[in-house]
Design a binder for these strands. Structure first.
Lengths: 138, 138
DNA sequence: GTCGCTGCAAAGTATTTGCATAGCC
DNA sequence: GGCTATGCAAATACTTTGCAGCGAC
């Protein structure tokens, strides 16, 4: 949690209980949680925590490099405390999102973007299908 | 447009003017249009075309394999008449989405999904950053 | 004490649903 | 003529914004 405090101070912000609690919750929850899930997880200890604050705080974490956005193809945006490059699998039936290993190399796609004159900053690879449980019952 | 008629009939559906017009509009518009943009483009010839119909029809196109969904990382869902495997670049500033060539190989990611017990059906690769125009003025 | 953060309320945007009617087959 | 697709209206889901008070520093 020291990384949070350092990053906030470096940016000239304030270390509030909400921010500490939300980062703890995001990390504890495992991955790919929605804003509402993070709020629920942190709500045990800070019940009147509001959703706008959750969104603002998650945006801050992204700005600070402590989280990344993952979109699971529609539905709510997911927030992921794991910031290293990795890929995701989303189930089109139950909506679950899981990590995929190993990460696939996105260098060709970024290079293609650069050749076209754009300035790539990051990439996201999403495999869609039926997860193990949904495939079994289908 | 014959592919549309065939696919609809094979599925036991009806070839309506809305469906024909919407597929034309989606193809004519170029790529990655939102539901609203498709409606605007088709609205010239069928002004009272409703947005729920547009959504239902675009879903049908996807079911028939005549379009795919592209999410540009937040904001509205984009619909793409180009169904072959290819990647996208989305500008985080202006929101534009463009195709990237060549496509990157997603075999490793799909294989990873399969090893984990899931049933992959498709994949989406999105590079995010600043597009050429936005990078220039930044 | 100051200024940034929070909570509340409300607005905004995107998409889906229910139902009566119209029109394709 | 039957049954599906359409259009309308409203509901839902998610996220953002404006603003007054609180609290970290």
């Amino acid at each position: 949690m020291d990384d949070l405090k350092q990053a906030i101070r470096a940016r000239g912000g304030r270390v509030t209980p909400q921010r500490v609690l939300l980062l703890e919750a995001l990390r504890r929850l495992g991955r790919h949680s929605t804003a509402e899930e993070v709020r629920a997880a942190a709500g045990d200890r800070l019940p009147q925590l509001s959703l706008p604050t959750v969104y603002a705080t998650l945006d801050l974490f992204i700005e600070l490099g402590l989280a990344r956005r993952v979109n699971a193809g529609g539905g709510a945006i997911r927030y992921d405390p794991r910031v290293e490059q990795h890929d995701h699998f989303a189930c089109r039936n139950c909506g679950n999102v899981v990590d995929l290993e190993p990460a696939i190399d996105d260098t060709p796609a970024r290079a293609a973007a650069r050749v076209a004159g754009h300035r790539p900053e990051g990439s996201e690879i999403l495999v869609v299908g039926l997860c193990r449980d949904c495939a079994r019952s289908a």
